[in-house]
Write a protein that binds this DNA or RNA. Structure first.
Lengths: 325, 325
DNA sequence: CAATTTATGTCAACCGGTTAACATACCCGG
DNA sequence: CCGGGTATGTTAACCGGTTGACATAAATTG
């Protein structure tokens, strides 16, 4: 790998001059500039960003911790985040925590050792205190940690409300909500809050199916839903916390000979691309994932540049009526 | 952020001693070691990996270029790669090229500037020459570039063969294959080769549906398949190059009132998790994605450590019989 | 023509570690 | 008591850039 010295030698100028060309500072003559560019080209030179990062104390790298990028929601989110971050001059180090808190802690340490400029946390299994200790810019995705740590979310309560209301509007009389662990302190739990509030207010019997703490195992979804229908065959409305769960629900219904939406109405969440790909298409609550992703990056940028940023960033959700409810 | 100097001062030892503790080299007394660890803990010190990378000329970062991590196949792959890489001491910088060659080129430059130890390329839209120029360790995913560049793939020809043979075994009389651009020089194109070979040998009429060069747009899949059925309503067997396409195919069939598998048999490819989640479950050709991912990382490691590695790495595929064929 | 402005160079320090070379000193065993 | 292993320190160079201070000289400008 050629270094700046090689470039200087080849162009017949000093290292300082090359650096000045590279960073566009100070006076540089046109001919010199051309000479330097030519030398760079001939040597196929590219500045060593590691050296630059060291000096500048800025790596232009964002750490992104997700449960797993294999889950379509986080896959899409990661794609949006990386694409936008790149357009802003940032690179993304990806971390799959599997919702395992010791892994999450290790990743945080690793990111710190690697001098990332900030961390977007879409997995939070640690105690609040651990996050507060971080002197790094941190943006939480879908979780409130403290008044100091900005977070991005969408209107989960409203999402939950819209979902149940749709089920009731469609005439459901016994409904269930399947969600992730309610022990993890995530704002997504507000969907369940809304679900219960509305169900109770309308005096509709309801059930809750909580998945394991550390699981995106789709097989598990099926089992749990099967159990639900075995215990409560009269359930005729299902609110699922993700579209993936909704797909699983459709399968379980089909297995049990229940027609969707005739016998059972199903409403998912997120509006990932698979939701509109299956048949019937899944009625769902759409989170503005692209906007949320971009906003996360902008918040990190704001923190990095010591600009004031708003702590609470809640974007609206939208009911997408399709075939399953 | 505390530096090694702060630790030295606090522990009352020299910087060299701290470094020796950190790197476990030379003689260190037990009491000194303890003092140093204690100081590190008290200061919450972590060594600056940027500085270390600079000195060692090794970043322990792998660049991963995929078309988009939003596609389940690449999402799952990325998850496997990152998890395995992390267990081997590597971090992963993720790049979504969108199958856009100028973006791909930019990402390659970026990765080089950032001194990654190697690149796993699962998107290759550039001319072969561009890749050969790279002095970096590169592993290609599903593409043969040159005898110098190791690649990981699975037995695409066999996969294609298994797929068509299954369709024929199931009695299909008019079949079609939907695949990505055949202009991108990917080993996945061998599936189409096999498809045609078998169809011709068995004298079964067949059609090819080629998607656009730069697309994972699922809407497009539907349109193309709809067009296919409008032009050739007698098609009764569909081989799709991904499970996502297969899901789209099921939807199109359902729209047209064709039952799967009774009227149309469908076989997908990859066996991503969604394949066994929809109903009916998708019959598919399984690529050993986890093994392929791990192998890619090991190849990078081998190249980094100047160990001899085999150029051709083709893993077996497997027919997974499920509900759609 | 003097004063600026422009253009470039030299030199050294710095970012935060790592490492080789060399010095010193203690402890232990033969 | 000498020699070698153990333990630690000092110093300086290095990784590949960046930057400020300062010097020099040519080109512009008023």
């Amino acid at each position: 790998m050629p270094t700046i010295k090689d470039v200087a030698k080849r162009a017949g100028v000093s290292v300082t001059t090359v650096s000045r060309v590279l960073n566009n500072r100070g006076y540089i003559g046109e001919t010199t500039r051309k000479k330097v560019y030519k030398a760079m080209e001939e040597l196929d030179y590219q500045p060593n960003e590691v050296a630059r990062s060291l000096f500048r104390k800025k790596s232009n790298i964002i750490g992104l911790i997700v449960p797993t990028v294999a889950h379509p929601f986080f896959g899409e989110m990661t794609s949006y985040i990386e694409t936008y971050a790149y357009s802003r001059g940032y690179k993304v180090l990806i971390c799959n925590s599997q919702l395992d808190s010791s892994k999450e802690q290790e990743y945080i340490w690793m990111l710190r050792r690697n001098q990332v400029d900030g961390i977007i946390m879409a997995s939070h299994t640690l105690d609040v205190e651990e996050y507060k200790k971080l002197e790094l810019p941190v943006v939480a995705f879908d979780r409130f940690i403290s008044k100091k740590i900005p977070y991005v979310t969408s209107d989960n309560y409203r999402g939950g409300k819209l979902a149940v209301e749709l089920l009731l509007e469609r005439g459901c009389t016994k409904i269930a909500h399947m969600c992730g662990s309610l022990h993890l302190d995530m704002l997504a739990n507000q969907r369940h809050r809304a679900f219960m509030d509305v169900a109770e207010e309308r005096k509709v019997p309801y059930f809750t199916v909580e998945t394991d703490i550390n699981v995106f195992e789709v097989k598990k979804y099926e089992e749990l839903l099967l159990d639900l229908f075995i215990e409560h065959p009269e359930v005729d409305g299902l609110f699922l916390n993700s579209d993936i769960m909704a797909v699983a629900a459709m399968k379980v219904c089909s297995k049990l000979g229940k027609r969707v939406p005739e016998d059972v109405k199903i409403i998912g969440y997120d509006d990932v691309s698979i939701a509109s790909l299956v048949s019937p298409e899944i009625t769902t609550i759409r989170q503005p994932l692209e906007q949320m992703s971009r906003l996360s990056v902008r918040l990190i940028e704001g923190l990095v540049n010591k600009k004031p940023v708003s702590v609470e960033n809640c974007l609206p959700v939208e009911l997408v009526r399709r075939g399953t409810a």
